[in-house]
Design a protein around this nucleic acid. Structure first.
Lengths: 231, 231
DNA sequence: CTTGCATGTAAGCATGTACTTGCATTATGA
DNA sequence: TCATAATGCAAGTACATGCTTACATGCAAG
């Protein structure tokens, strides 16, 4: 039966995610799968062969919808994308951590980690280029977005999703804002950094051409340290 | 002798960083320390006791100089700070990865991970508040910095350092810009996101009031997909 | 029915690992 | 010089783990 094979594979993924390679005992995996240890060997021959299979299967998942080729509403589109990526990362959290920590000793788990993020970063870079081509980024005030900073901004958004998904469970004090609002906040900060101004006003393509003076008095009140800031 | 004790501790840290808890055999540690396996037991009694000691010692290091209480040149100060943090993170990379991946199974290693980043994030938040109080952030164009976005920006800079230090060695394609320029780039993007405009012009408080049109033609050449962008 | 096939049971082997015991050796300091 | 402490060596115990062998069971297709 094929059924047992997949049960073993899924169990192996769970056990590996929780205990790492050395901790993923054949006995533990068999127990988790509700299967005799020997059928495990009969299917895969070897523990390392089994976990190699796990590594190759887990690279497939990546069911995050791509960014649209024709940007319309950057904030909405990016937020949905980042949200989906973060959900995916959160689901893979433990497995990612194990694979990363053992990457030197056991490069076989590499596919489990590598492709996703790199592809996503390139997707995001291309998306920003498209934004710029469509004139959705203002490059005023003499500080246009240079490649170095574009790369940095992309890396920051990627690592924001990654770090939030990975680190929030183990050090929640570092993320005072609620998880549900994180993706949107990262995207807004990102858009502001790359020079997309139409963020809080919901007019998608209009460019507000008077960014210079005043407006500060009213702001200062709202911006006064509000608990979450001072500590 | 105290000398052997510290030799064992350092060896244990190295071996643990590379092989994790289960892979950190007492034999391996003793070999790495150039010491008989038995003196290891005579000093620490137990493998877990030894690694507990390692966890408590490694929390101490954190020799990153704090951000200045009186901000003067934000870009310079933040870049130095981020650079120091990234160097530290790079040095602790493997140990951090192991500790993080085993945090659920073995919370003892928690101190090795927890304190540093949380303190740093709070430091950065306070620094930004000081920046704003000194009027070094412009809040024009209707999009002032709200607490949610401040937290997000702080998390992004922290996670940028973290993610770069952790991920660059294992997926260099994701970081097309050279490591030496990373810290500076992250800081500039961060400052732009929180509304600190005096970045490329070295005039600290001047605001250039003509941000709207043009300048794009000259940019487009430099910004056209430069290999690292399109793929 | 019987021939395969997938699975389960029982037992075991070889190895690695944490840790112990007993005794010899070396260095330290009074 | 001598007692004390720290270290090394040899051997061994108890257990976990990867993997094997030999044999029994259930089940579907010819």
């Amino acid at each position: 039966m094929q059924e047992n094979r997949t049960r073993i594979l899924e169990a192996a993924a769970r056990v590996y995610a929780q205990h790492g390679y050395r901790g993923a005992t054949t006995r533990r995996i068999a127990d988790e799968a509700g299967v005799n240890e020997i059928t495990l060997f009969r299917h895969f021959g070897t523990k390392s062969a089994l976990l190699d299979c796990v590594a190759h299967e887990c690279g497939i998942s990546e069911n995050v919808p791509p960014l649209p080729t024709q940007p319309v509403h950057p904030e909405r589109e990016l937020t949905a994308w980042v949200q989906a990526r973060m959900d995916h990362l959160r689901a893979m959290r433990q497995l990612l951590l194990q694979a990363m920590s053992e990457l030197q000793e056991r490069p076989d788990m590499g596919p489990c980690v590598g492709h996703g993020p790199v592809d996503a970063a390139n997707q995001l870079r291309d998306y920003v280029v498209r934004l710029r081509r469509r004139g959705l980024l203002d490059m005023g005030d003499g500080t246009g977005l240079r490649p170095l900073e574009l790369n940095a901004a992309v890396a920051m958004l990627m690592n924001a999703s990654f770090g939030d998904a990975i680190s929030r469970p183990m050090m929640p004090e570092m993320f005072p804002s609620p998880q549900s609002k994180a993706a949107g906040a990262y995207v807004r900060v990102f858009l502001r950094a790359i020079g997309h101004r139409a963020v809080h006003t919901d007019v998608p393509t209009a460019r507000t051409p008077k960014p210079t003076l005043a407006h500060q008095a009213a702001r200062k009140v709202r911006l006064a340290p509000s608990k979450s800031i001072s500590e």
